[in-house]
Design a protein around this nucleic acid. Structure first.
Lengths: 207, 207
DNA sequence: GCTTTTACATACAACCTTGTATGGATGGCG
DNA sequence: CGCCATCCATACAAGGTTGTATGTAAAAGC
């Protein structure tokens, strides 16, 4: 076969990652062979072993395309007035996350990480999930602590507990939706649940 | 080898299931062979293929030992006065569930189902999780609806949303804890989060 | 324009796992 | 006490997957 140009090679690399997403999601990571991924992209295993060292390397490259830390979501909003409205910062960051998750690539890859893979090779999905969860939980607790200091949190509600409550609720919603995304829209239900929860946790407007 | 008595045969069956739990949890379902399970129980694959048809059959038998529907938890409490205090029914059922999850067998098997297996053979773990989630969510919404009719839910809080909120929060807590149970006690944090959430959702005591 | 490197396809050896077939010794039962 | 079904070990055939080695034709670089 003819050698491809640099742009074509980059395209096949992306095509391989696309194919991996689809096959991983459909059959699970463990049950899909590199042969199946290659054929789904109209390539052979040779292409995969050229672009990636092995399945674990391919998997990590796939994840690399959809990283979405909570803090970055807040920063992307770029509203400096959010420093004085931490609960609103949480709200907007979550809404931005919901919207992004509705893009097929983000949805698929997160669904694979959460529901369609086990430990294999040097890959430990649970460790990755732990990192994601702790990053989000830490940020949520920080913002709740900030809200408490500003008197925007309901009196008697511990900011640490409030943060863990939000993290658990968002995580549960996340898992449920990724399990079958056709059951409901994460943007719609997420907005509803989050707004309800924030209303419950907000301090009653003084005066 | 000598044939075992009926009691011994039943014991080896249980031993095989115990071994499966441990190896599945450690290495993931897909990456463990029947050979590894058998050796971990000081048996051979012959024993497995005698007691079970294949890996999927073994897996289902393992799950069968830890079924725990939400409704059954409520019924096991057996307090008729709970009909008038639906939010308390939710609370006690969850506490009972937390306690049961701290038993190694319940914790291990649920961790396997949620975090350490993919689709394989005729087994679809996501479908099983969906059933569990929907059963719990349905029950929670029912109890919240009952609470609303009794005036025990905060005015303006939709009982459907309240139920989904509880289900999401409990599910998120469940997933987080199963991911690494050494990080916190589900009984302690669960009690704290649940009580906080129920306090937020309860109607203010009238008069 | 020639050489080198790239971007794959193809071929091959090794391993692991599964399912089944077979064997064998004993417990249960008439 | 004799027979049969049970409970499990062992052996065997078949297939699937991985990693690597090799081939190759064109793009890149000088």
């Amino acid at each position: 076969m003819a050698r491809r140009t640099k742009a074509e090679a980059a395209a096949t690399r992306e095509a391989l990652l696309d194919a991996a997403e689809e096959v991983f999601l459909e059959k699970g990571v463990a049950r899909t062979s590199l042969e199946q991924i290659a054929r789904h992209a109209d390539m052979t295993r040779g292409a995969i072993y050229w672009h990636f060292r092995n399945k674990a390397d391919l998997f990590q490259a796939m994840l690399q395309r959809v990283r979405m830390p909570f803090q970055e979501l807040v920063e992307e909003i770029g509203d400096p007035s959010l420093a004085e409205r931490p609960l609103e910062a949480i709200r907007l960051a979550c809404l931005k996350g919901f919207e992004r998750l509705e893009q097929p690539r983000y949805r698929r890859v997160h669904a694979i990480l959460i529901h369609h893979c086990e430990v294999f090779g040097e890959i430990d999905p649970l460790a990755m999930q732990n990192e994601m969860a702790e990053e989000a939980c830490g940020a949520l607790i920080d913002y709740c602590g900030c809200a408490a200091r500003l008197g925007q949190l309901r009196p008697g509600l511990d900011p640490g507990v409030a943060g863990e409550l939000l993290q658990a609720m968002l995580g549960g919603l996340f898992h449920d939706w990724l399990r079958n995304h056709e059951q409901f829209s994460i943007l719609e239900r997420g907005t509803l649940l989050l707004d309800t929860q924030l209303t419950l946790m907000r301090a009653a407007p003084s005066g």
